[in-house]
Nucleic acid binder design. Structure first.
Lengths: 223, 223
DNA sequence: GGGAAGTATCTTGCATGCAATTTCGTAATC
DNA sequence: GATTACGAAATTGCATGCAAGATACTTCCC
């Protein structure tokens, strides 16, 4: 459809980002400009510009004169990213408590109720999709596009590491209960509680990930 | 010194950013690629790449096929930026209360004490420099480079609009008092109070700006 | 005189080519 | 046998050229 309104550079950036996020391009892979240009049927110029763009989001690492590689994320950096993500999500929830319109609040409630059914049916797939939507509502609800963008970008950056998020048994019901706490605080206009509830929620997600990713490694102290 | 270790693109990005921040390039100015290339004595290629980089920070606006302009910031966008900045600063303060090392805490106290003298001498210039330093301590003190980067970038982006920050009479002493509240909360390890105090502090800065920038325009409700 | 259509100029998007730096492989020395 | 030095291949950084789209201007029509 709208495939010729955006420039080749933008299309490339999107495709490469997708390849990284869905795992086709593994961390550490060298991103040779000639290779990418050949693979996507363009010249090196748009490839270079796309790589610069991706570098600013942190998805890839650009070393001057030494080429680009898909960002290798150490578990320490990952923890840093999760903490930052959590703080931003909590901030969005905080602002949502202060700024959401009645319509937005009603939508939030409706989505939450719908997600209860998915938990009852144990429909992990539907719940995962609805979960993304749920969080997105707070980005928009903050009524602050700058913050919403930052948070969405970070979420995208962490997407490769959250595949198995709802695998752990009982995680669905727990997640839904936490969502309930966040939602009630936001609907009540209680900024501090909304912040705390969301922070608690995403911290647990982080812990769940760490248990899956490195079950035997010694737990570092959170910063 | 280190002028040939970084690439032309990076140097260009820095110089153009400086020109925007110090006001040499006013908002709305068209950034013609040929013109910039000629002015800085390079070809268009590094100019293009520098522009892309600046676009991601928000300093300039890049419209596909229509060129780049120095970002025009409406007062509404400015308020959004200030709110986001405030939330991020508050978050850094929150994390600082939890994570600062004893050495960092001591440095914070020392700087605060030194700033008291500047207030007494009414040395606006020195205070402004120390103020930047003061805030930077919290970025580092969060022990979260991702968050610190985001906050520093936003601060840089807002730099053009904070020139007259300490002009208003009595602002120096007030600022110092607020710094004191933030510092005490951080030193006490009280995350919630640190967050609240910093938010209060930067909100007042925002208000001061708005009074200077648009004294007669009707006040919008903060989001 | 005002507006619209067509044309010319300008600007960006992309391709290609060259030079400099890095990296890899080979060989020589310790 | 390991390490270092040298050289070749490869890769990035940058310059230039061309084509498509956008802007500005002229001209024509109402």
């Amino acid at each position: 459809m709208a495939d010729e309104r955006q420039t080749r550079t933008e299309k490339l950036a999107g495709e490469i980002a997708d390849a990284i996020i869905d795992g086709s391009l593994e961390p550490g892979t060298r991103l040779d400009e000639h290779m990418l240009a050949a693979r996507y049927g363009t010249s090196r110029t748009p490839v270079r510009e796309a790589l610069r763009k991706l570098a600013t989001t942190g998805l890839i690492e650009l070393r001057p004169r030494r080429g680009a590689i898909v960002a290798e994320v150490t578990s320490q950096q990952l923890e840093t990213l999760f903490v930052a993500m959590g703080e931003l999500e909590a901030t969005c929830a905080r602002l949502s408590a202060l700024s959401m319109t009645p319509i937005e609040r009603r939508r939030l409630g409706a989505l939450y109720d719908g997600m209860a059914d998915m938990v009852a049916r144990d429909d992990v797939e539907a719940y995962a999709a609805a979960n993304t939507h749920f969080h997105t509502l707070f980005y928009a609800g903050s009524h602050n596009p700058v913050l919403a963008d930052m948070t969405a970008t970070l979420r995208r950056r962490l997407a490769p590491f959250r595949h198995a998020q709802f695998r752990a048994p009982g995680r669905l019901a727990l997640s839904h209960a936490e969502h309930g706490a966040v939602m009630r605080a936001v609907l009540a206009g209680d900024a501090a509680s909304a912040h705390a509830a969301m922070l608690h929620h995403v911290s647990l997600v982080e812990d769940a990930f760490e248990q899956l990713a490195a079950p035997s490694s010694p737990r570092r102290r959170a910063n």
